[in-house]
Amino acid sequence: MPMTEAARIHGVLAEFDSPEALLQATRKAASAGFTEVEAYTPYPVHGLADSLGFTRTGIPALVFTGGLIGCISGYLLQYWVSVHAYPINVGGRPLHSWPSFIPVTFETTVLCAALFAVLGMLGLNGLPMPYHPVFNIPQFERASQDRFFLYILSRDEKFDLRETRRFLENLKPREVFDVPE
């Protein structure tokens, strides 16, 4: 294969029949030293994230930050409204009546934490992503139905088109595809 073509390869995709086969293949890829590996399945497969080396994410820190921002800003908003912007005497209670601020503070905490969780998850996953090379393979459509895919990216340090292809073929997949950029 000429060099110019090899350079335009985004990665090599292997199609499997069962989650067990994919899980085994993923483990073998990890022990073979591949680090730029993706897996695609129609439903969550238990243990797959671990075998992909996907153990820590930035989500907890993001959600905590979101919660903190929501908590503080929710409380300050009420404080500003009730004490400065529009002070009303309610049955002689002090303007800064913290017990009545708690429910809204709790709500804004949950709201911001949830927004950070959803938007943070999308952001960390690089979504929305209008184009991804794997969709150039027509068979990939079945990743959302009944097939399980393992994808080794060409930017992996160990990647070599011919060797990686042979490696994947040895894992007994249904088929192996070269994915163009």
Binding site: G91, R93, P99, S100, I102, P103
Partner: peptide, 12 residues
């Protein structure tokens, strides 16, 4: 626990 406190505090 807080709900009971808040309701009683609010009603006074």
């Amino acid at each position: 626990t807080f709900s009971q406190f808040l309701l009683i505090w609010s009603a006074n």
